[in-house]
């Protein structure tokens, strides 16, 4: 099995995404990996003139502290695109992630629907291993830590 040097995790600010980021940061402490926290900037985020970079950065630092991962081993990557396309690009250079991590559903999708699910789209198209972290895994994550 290929060693995990870089983990890319999707982050839209939702609670599900925070759970996924916690899981990825904790995994990184176990396998000495870097974590790239990817945020996709869609059409509406730009239309609304949101600038979420500072908020996301602060959130990431808090999550690093919770997980015990040095700040230098986690970076925020903000890219234009839909969430699925941005996560798929994480497998390509320059990031070249070895593992993708996402929550079960983010801000855009509906529970129980096949359509509009970033995690299911990634499961179909990803060329590298993918972990879909369910919301209930918060407890398991803290046990793992």
């Amino acid at each position: 099995m290929k060693p995990i040097h870089t983990i890319a995790v999707g982050f839209d600010g939702s609670e599900d995404a925070k759970t996924a980021v916690r899981w990825a940061l904790t995994l990184a402490t176990h396998c000495d990996a870097q974590v790239v926290v990817a945020h996709a900037v869609g059409l509406l985020e730009r239309f609304d003139a949101k600038n979420v970079a500072v908020e996301l950065e602060e959130s990431l630092l808090r999550l690093c502290d919770e997980s015990g991962l040095e700040h230098s081993r986690a970076q925020l990557e903000i890219e234009d695109g839909d969430a699925c396309s941005v996560m798929l690009r994480m497998a390509d250079p320059p990031i070249s992630a070895d593992l993708l991590v996402v929550g079960t559903r983010g801000q855009g999708a509906h529970a129980g629907l096949l359509l509009g699910s970033t995690s299911l789209e990634l499961a179909e198209h990803s060329t590298i291993p993918l972990v879909i972290v369910p919301r209930a895994s918060t407890t398991e994550q803290s046990q793992m830590a």
Partner: peptide
């Protein structure tokens, strides 16, 4: 098939946009 069914069920958000 999925898009048609999604709409007939009332629709909603397909992604962030």
């Amino acid at each position: 098939d999925q898009l048609g069914a999604f709409c007939f069920e009332g629709g909603g958000d397909l992604d962030e946009d």
